[in-house]
Amino acid sequence: MQITTSYIQDEALFRTRGQIVWAVLLGAVLVLFPIFGPGHWVYFCGLLAINIIATTGLNIITGYTGLLSLGHAAFMGVGAYTAALLAVHFNMPFYLTLPAAGALTALVGVAFGLPSLRIRGLYLVIATLAAQFILHFVFVEWDSLTKGDVGLVLEPARIFGITLNTERHMFFLVTPVAIVMLLFAHNLFRSRVGRAFVAIRERDLTAEVLGVHLVKYKLMSFAIGSFYAGVAGGLMAYFFRFVIPEQYGLLLSVFFLASVIVGGMGSTLGSILGALFMTILPEVLRLIVQLFGDTYGVDVTKVLVPLRETVFGLLIVLFLIFAPHGLVQIWERIRLAVATWPLKG
């Protein structure tokens, strides 16, 4: 196997013909599904795609680079407000507002990250916590711009004269963006920049000896992750067609942290699996509560939010202790077991 050409193939995105076939099949499903699939499933998948983008962003910061951010939701909020304001006031199309949302969020991220990332230690946790509360304060209190708790309402996104006002249309906007951003992240980690991020997570001083400028790369990682949050927030604004501060509270930051941990820190597949698990979870919880609520007369609306908190927290704790590499690791084990079956017990 170790002939001279094998390692060129080793470095390729798709290593075997089988993988290419799978990719083509997946592409076909992604095109056909929103046309023929049931509406609420298409809606769900649109939301999933947005969550995948946001999870990937946080995974770049926390999973790959080992920096903890507790303000991811607030950064998404910056993206959502940026996109909504540009769309409402300047009538800008989404293909301009979304990059702008990403760019401004990255900038805000750098502003919050710079003071704490200059020093070694856990200071970014505090800075991002500060970002979470300060940005939320800005969303609520800067009334003239954000309309406070009332929030902003958006016109649907348009392209080529088509109005993207159904979940099927939105799917065609959200999914390609998600795929492009996933590929970007995946590529990042097979190159110099991504390797430097992981090196910082593993041993920052050794990385420095090898020529990695710690402050620059930590900031870069944080900026890229925030860019992802901004784009995800912008898409969310178009997806729900309104932006209110309440959407971007601390609980959403917890949601994405759980998503990264459950899926698998430092893995692209982990971001996908984590987002999938966490997007399904609230639906499952709702079903369970409704089921028991009917039987025992529990007030569904009152229990649902605390139950979510409880389960998100529990997942973070359990996965960190028992499965620190997340669902990816479990998935790989199953795959290996299937591949080697029946040779190995």
Binding site: L122, L257, I261, L307, E309, F312, L315, I316, V317
Partner: peptide, 21 residues
């Protein structure tokens, strides 16, 4: 260390949820 921090954070969220229930 960030795993330790995250685990206390998760535990805190969990406790708040249980208390609300």
């Amino acid at each position: 260390i960030i795993s330790l921090v995250m685990v206390t954070f998760g535990a805190g969220i969990m406790m708040r949820g249980i208390a609300s229930i």
